[in-house]
Nucleic acid binder design. Structure first.
Lengths: 127, 127
DNA sequence: CTTGACATTCCAGTAAGTGGAAGGATTAGT
DNA sequence: ACTAATCCTTCCACTTACTGGAATGTCAAG
């Protein structure tokens, strides 16, 4: 499987597949005589695994850890859970932060006349 | 006012103050004989304005626009409101996205035994 | 007069890719 | 067999918004 086919099968752009090989995340198992990267089913599964983990917001480094656990049939689910819990806390922290921003900004937007006059509570709040 | 004093007064690190000058966001009004940047009250107000706008999550480019409006005594509050509304929608989009992630991840974390066995619904979901 | 705190510039790195150029390989169609 | 289109390769630059550090210059105090 050339990189284009692996890209389609995994759902990642070829650029990203190549990038993941560059940083040693998911390497192509071999190269053809012409130097083309050659992906097999197992590599494609790993690429798709990483894609899904990234969609969950796991960092590349976390993906590295998850991938190692994915490949380790003797893993402890506790190890996976720890990573996921850390990510969950991060999400919750970000949610609280966004909620504060949202509420204050919504308040300001509501208070702003939005007409041709220069008076603006949004600017006032920033000044 | 040297950059250190302007930094303290505005609440931005000196590195950032220098960076904002480099990208033409908030330039120091003048330089001393030795080449030190010299900030006045007005420049410090702009720096602090940008700091607060950044805390609201406005991008540097949005800050550029807000700063121009801040300085324009003939501004229309409608122009400010447009920028703020765009930011608000962005926040709401991100909130929805995070909520989805949160719910699914929380579900998975709850379903994971977190013990020494390898069976793990989190890994299963990513595989 | 020296020490310490400040200032300067420039280079490099961060996260996670994306875009593009220059050039080689393969495949389809004629 | 030739050619065009598509695919692949590497390498370099760019993105966001800074941050860290090195080498060097300046200023105020004791």
């Amino acid at each position: 499987m050339n990189i284009g086919a692996a890209s389609k099968a995994s759902g990642l752009p070829t650029k990203t597949v190549r990038y993941y090989a560059d940083i040693g995340l998911v390497e192509a198992p071999s190269r053809t005589g012409a130097g083309y990267r050659s992906y097999d089913e197992s590599a494609v599964r790993k690429l798709a695994f990483v894609r899904r983990a990234r969609e969950f917001g796991f960092s590349i480094d976390e993906c590295r850890g998850l991938l190692a656990l994915y490949e380790d049939s003797n893993r402890s689910s506790a190890d996976v859970k720890r990573i996921a819990e850390a990510r969950l806390e991060e999400i919750e922290r970000k949610q609280r932060e966004l909620q504060c921003l949202h509420d204050e900004l919504e308040h300001l937007v509501a208070a702003c006349a939005g007409d041709g006059r220069p008076d603006c509570p949004i600017i006032d709040r920033l000044a």
